[in-house]
Amino acid sequence: MWTFIQDQILGMKWLNVLIQNLLAVIGIDTSSKIGGSITFFIYDVIKISVLLCVLIFVISYIQSFFPPERSKRILGRFHGIGANLISALLGTVTPFCSCSSIPLFMGFTSAGLPLGVTFSFLISSPMVDLGSLVLLMSIFGVKVAIVYVVLGLVIAVVGGSIIEKLHLENQVEGFIRNASSVEIDTPSLTQKERLIYAKDQVVETFKKVILYILVGVAIGAIIHNWIPESWVINVLGNRNPLGVVLATVVGVPMYADIFGTIPIAESLLGKGAQLGTVLSFMMAVTTLSLPSMIMLKKAIKPKLLGVFIAICVIGIVLVGYLFNVIQFILL
């Protein structure tokens, strides 16, 4: 039963068969390289677009219950490592875009939340979200998805705690430390307003990421049918002990949505790249990016920014190696 959900509903295998049959009708040989690329492209664009729309709708509906102002109040009730954990969890459900990171940072700090708790939130928010959980399930299976999310939360909690222990409060720009706390009421939404909000988010997100999806799928289709398997195995497979490090370093400055990285990850895995190597690439692309670092640099001094980047990179590399070691259990 679960296999059916996995393959046909989340994985949409039936769609692949349908596309192959349709292309065969118009005379394209889907076993050829070009035919295979076309199949991969059409199948992945449709699959990812459908998943994206359904997912964003459900996620936005859930998120409408957790505006950052509310997350801030919830967090004020927790202390110690528990606060880091709740912060990492809230990071996965609080709607958040990179340009809100500074107001959010200031809001958390002025409410008296420890620096480490804020960073647990800032790490987990881009790295792990509800969307990545379901997407990973559809492509790599439920075990990989759950382990990914758990490890992402571990990085966020441990990373936040380390920043806490290092006492880097003086590394936060003065205007943030001195911001006064302002409590405002979060408007209570009706059921209808939440549904409209969710629908608007679907339209907005779709417009924003469709380009990433098309580019990601196009790269995926090229890897899928044109790049020799031996190349991928040599660079990203078990013959290269530094594959994880390479994937992370390449992924960090890149900025793409998880929906755009999935098709690349999927096709690399199919060509013999190791699971951990592929996942560390995805984590690196989604967690750290130049635009978000430039934004954060306005709020924190270079030393703390460096510590933040180092923790994320080391965490991602460790997760990559761990996945490579336990790959045979998960796939």
């Binding site: 505006p67 950052p68 102002e69 801030k72 709607p95 958040f96 875009c97 340009c99 809100s100 500074i102 107001p103 959010l104 200031m106 809001g107 002025s110 205007f175 943030i176 911001a179 006064s180 706390s181 302002v182 409590e183 405002i184 306005k298 709020a299």
Partner: peptide, 21 residues
């Protein structure tokens, strides 16, 4: 950022009418 914080809004964009979010 400092003026934004003064209004207490943490998610952008926000609209303030007559000093009220």
């Amino acid at each position: 950022p400092q003026r934004i914080m003064g209004y207490g809004a943490m998610s952008m964009p926000a609209i303030v009418v007559n000093e009220k979010v």
